[in-house]
């Protein structure tokens, strides 16, 4: 066990972790971010996406101890008036909802890099996230809508 210092959604957490613990498990069980979820365990579905220092990461494959001092954003930590959240809600971009926080964070990363993405750029950024309910049309509309609102973290 060693102490790990994480800033999660702006709050500082000092949590004891084992060397082999994954960021996903630390965030869920020790920080309480249950919006970060396991889906495939191999980085292929995006349900466990978090932003680490602004970059999307599959927390199911990330060793927690490599992230000492990192700033982490999870979907549940987004501000109440977050433009991406608003856009997803308004576009009805959710069915079962399990995968959606991952899409929301990927959208934030995309818009931070490219504030006005076209359809191809949206697809290129979201192609590694799986929504088994097939909400892709609404999700793409939400990304476009968020871009129009000028979404920024």
């Amino acid at each position: 066990m060693r102490m790990l210092n994480l800033t999660v959604n702006g709050r500082v957490h000092d949590v004891p972790v084992d060397d082999n613990e994954l960021l996903l498990d630390v965030l869920r069980t020790k920080v309480g971010c249950t919006s970060v979820r396991e889906g495939c365990g191999v980085g292929a579905c995006g349900a466990c996406t978090v932003l680490v220092d602004g970059r999307s990461v599959s927390s199911c494959l990330a060793l927690a101890v490599r992230h000492d001092g990192a700033e982490i954003v999870t979907a549940d930590g987004l501000p109440g008036d977050d433009a991406v959240v608003e856009a997803f809600v308004e576009c009805g971009a959710m069915q079962c909802g399990y995968c959606i926080p991952g899409f929301v964070l990927m959208t934030h990363e995309l818009l931070a890099e490219n504030p006005q993405p076209d359809a191809e750029q949206i697809a290129a950024h979201l192609e590694g996230n799986i929504c088994r309910c097939g909400t892709y049309p609404e999700i793409c509309a939400a990304v476009t809508s968020a871009a129009a609102r000028g979404a920024r973290l």
């Binding site: 980085g43 292929a44 995006g46 996406t49 970059r55 999307s56 990461v57 599959s58 494959l61 990330a62 990927m106 990363e109 290129a124 950024h125 192609e127 590694g128 996230n129």
Partner: peptide, 12 residues
């Protein structure tokens, strides 16, 4: 390089 897997994997 932009074709590898997905952005999360490419970030890591």
């Amino acid at each position: 390089y932009g074709h590898v897997a997905n952005p999360r994997v490419r970030n890591t």
